[in-house]
């Protein structure tokens, strides 16, 4: 475990370039870099406002998870959908949210994404395919499978990505949802952002398997481990999973170790 995490933290320069250059043009890559910076600066601004007592309630930052959000969403269109988590600001921005409406929501304003009713944990932007962040760990996973069922039934060609953290992989909803997505071969990609801890509890203490991606085998789907800090690695894995979903071959579980 320790050795793998050490390896995952090695600099990613160079080894990610070939796929990204082959798959995305310069504008798309500039856009991705810009979004990663935007997420970091947005979160620093959010934290600053929070620490100054300007923001009410709860705030979960996605600093250090910029590459997984952007790398996954790089291969999605506005039509494709995501479900997100309590730590969801990065996903919203990666999916094209307007950061001023996000901040307005943090301040509880009617101009915010949820008209001040939801706050940090409930940003949704359906026009960009973001079906909503979620305050319940694992709550969005079956909802993503339902959205993928709609895509399959209506033949829309949409792919749905469900983001969740390492903590969610011990919720029953994770297991039930992955099983159903697999038996019905639904166009969904499960993305676990494994940051090593569910609050204070380490993955090693909470999870019986060494890698969360190992759990994919139980549901007969590919399980892929990537360096979640390498946007190229993430994007390459997402590209394969999205393509598989669009071909009607069913779901993939990607574990981004961040």
């Amino acid at each position: 475990m320790a050795a793998r995490q050490k390896q995952a933290r090695q600099p990613a320069e160079g080894r990610n370039l070939p796929f990204l250059y082959a798959r995305f043009d310069a504008d798309a890559l500039r856009g991705a870099l810009r979004k990663m910076h935007l997420i970091r600066q947005f979160e620093e601004g959010a934290e600053d406002s929070y620490m100054r007592g300007l923001i009410h309630g709860t705030m979960h930052l996605s600093i250090g998870q910029e590459a997984s959000a952007v790398g996954i969403c790089l291969g999605l269109s506005d039509e494709d959908q995501i479900t997100s988590t309590h730590r969801g600001h990065g996903h919203s921005i990666a999916k094209g949210a307007d950061v001023s409406r996000m901040f307005a929501e943090f301040f509880g304003k009617t101009t915010g994404y949820c008209r001040g009713r939801g706050g940090s944990m409930h940003i949704a932007d359906v026009s960009k395919g973001n079906l909503g962040a979620n305050g319940i760990v694992g709550g969005g996973i079956p909802i993503a499978v339902g959205a993928a069922l709609t895509a399959k039934k209506l033949g829309t060609g949409k792919v749905v990505v469900s983001f969740f953290g390492d903590g969610a992989n011990n919720e029953g909803a994770f297991h039930e949802a992955l099983n159903m997505a697999s038996i019905w071969k639904l166009p969904v990609v499960f993305v676990c952002e494994n940051n090593g801890y569910g609050m204070s509890t380490s993955v090693a203490r909470a999870t019986a398997v060494a890698n969360i991606a190992d759990r994919a085998a139980a549901y007969a789907m590919p399980g892929v481990i990537v360096d979640g800090n390498s946007v190229g690695e993430v994007a390459e894995a997402a590209d394969a999973a999205i393509a598989r979903a669009r071909r009607g071959e069913g779901p993939t579980l990607i574990e981004c170790k961040t």
């Binding site: 079906l131 709550g139 339902g146 099983n179 159903m180």
Partner: peptide
């Protein structure tokens, strides 16, 4: 396809129904 048997997964099944409803079914 329209009268779908689900696994014995009430939590997941209810969530799938919610997700399908949110997206237009």
């Amino acid at each position: 396809e329209r009268v779908m048997d689900t696994p014995i997964s009430e939590l997941g099944g209810a969530g799938v129904a919610v997700g399908a409803a949110v997206t237009g079914l």
